[in-house]
Design a protein around this nucleic acid. Structure first.
Length: 253
DNA sequence: AACCCGAGCAACCGCTGTAAA
DNA sequence: CTTTACAGCGGTTGCTCGGGT
C-alpha cells in the first residue's frame, strides 16, 4: 500500500559477514551515508537485508567503536548503570563511549552477571581476575520503564526503589516525599528525557562537590525536590543515585 | 591426540514505537 | 484515521575456540 513490501526473505544472505561484505558496506556508508537502511544493501550491492547491515555497522564496523577488553572502570560503570537502568543496554551504552549495546549485553550475560552471584566458581574468578566489591545478588532496576508496562507492576513499585537506597540513611525520607505514581511520572519526565545525561549529573556533582555525599539531610532540603525545575530535579536524582549506588565513584572516573 | 564442555561473541529474531502515505 | 514500513531495542541462538580431561 504505502511503501514497498518489507524486506524480502528470498535471496537474502544470513550468517557471519565476510571481509568483502564488510568492505563493501563500509565503503558505501563512508561515501553515501546510511539514510535508508532498507535501500542500502541493494544500492551497495549486498545480498543482505537492511536490518542485518544496520546491525553489522552499529555493532562492528562503526569507526568509533572501541574494541578489546573492558577496563575495570568500564565494568564498574556497567554495574552501576545496570543497577539504575536495568537491562536498558542502549541507555547504558550511551554512557560508555565506543561500546555498543550488544557488546555490553554480551559482556553482562557471559561474565559480569556471574560476578553478582555469590556462588561463582573458582574457575570463573581466576579467569577474570578483576578485583571487585563483595558479591551481591542481582538487583532489579531502581528505575521502572514506563513503556514496558513494568511501571505499574508491583515488583517495580516504590518498595523496590526504597529497598535499593536502604543502604543510606535517607531511604525513609525519600520514600515519603512522593507516591509511586509520582515517582513513575517524575522518572519518565526527568530521567528518561535527553536532558538528564550523565554529563549533567557530573556537572551538578562538580558544582556541589562529590565528597559531600552521602548525606540524607540535603535530599530533604525544600529546594531539592524531584518536582522542582529541571536542573534542581536532576540534582535531586543525582543525589538519590549517589545514595543508592555510590554514584560519586562514577563522577571521579 | 582426541574428545568434551563451557565461555565468548556475532548475528538473528521478534516486538514496539514512530513516521509516512 | 488507518495501514504499513522503518528503525531501534532487548532477548536469544548458535558457532567458534580454548582449556580441561
Amino acid at each position: 500500500m504505502v511503501r514497498a513490501p518489507c524486506c524480502e526473505k528470498m535471496g537474502v544472505k544470513k550468517g557471519p559477514w565476510t571481509p568483502e561484505e564488510d568492505r563493501i558496506l563500509v565503503d558505501y556508508i563512508q561515501r553515501y551515508g546510511h539514510g535508508n537502511w532498507r535501500a542500502l544493501p541493494k544500492q551497495a550491492g549486498l545480498l543482505r537485508c537492511g536490518k542485518s547491515c544496520r546491525l553489522r555497522w552499529a555493532n562492528y564496523l562503526r569507526p568509533d567503536i572501541k574494541r578489546g577488553n573492558f577496563t575495570k572502570e568500564e565494568e564498574e560503570m556497567i554495574f552501576k548503570l545496570h543497577e539504575l537502568l536495568g537491562n536498558r543496554w542502549s541507555a547504558i551504552a550511551a554512557r560508555l563511549p565506543g561500546r555498543t549495546d550488544n557488546e555490553i549485553k554480551n559482556v553482562w550475560h557471559t561474565y559480569l552477571k556471574k560476578r553478582l552471584m555469590p556462588n561463582q566458581t573458582v574457575k570463573e574468578s581466576k579467569k577474570r581476575a578483576i578485583h571487585t566489591s563483595e558479591p551481591k545478588t542481582e538487583s532489579k532496576p531502581i528505575i521502572p520503564r514506563s513503556d514496558s508496562g513494568l511501571a505499574t507492576s508491583p515488583e517495580y513499585s516504590m518498595s523496590g526503589f526504597s529497598s535499593s537506597v536502604a543502604d543510606g540513611n535517607s531511604a525513609a525520607t525519600v520514600e515519603e516525599s512522593f507516591s509511586s505514581e509520582e515517582f513513575t511520572e517524575i522518572i519518565d519526565e526527568r530521567f528518561w528525557s535527553e536532558t538528564l545525561s550523565m554529563d549533567d549529573c557530573f556537572a551538578t556533582t562538580m558544582q556541589y562537590g562529590a565528597s559531600e555525599t552521602p548525606s540524607g539531610d540535603q535530599i530533604n532540603e525544600p529546594s531539592l525536590s524531584p518536582l522542582s525545575s529541571n536542573s534542581e530535579g536532576m540534582e535531586f536524582w543525582w543525589r538519590v543515585f549517589m545514595e543508592a549506588g555510590e554514584m560519586k565513584d562514577l563522577a571521579l572516573i
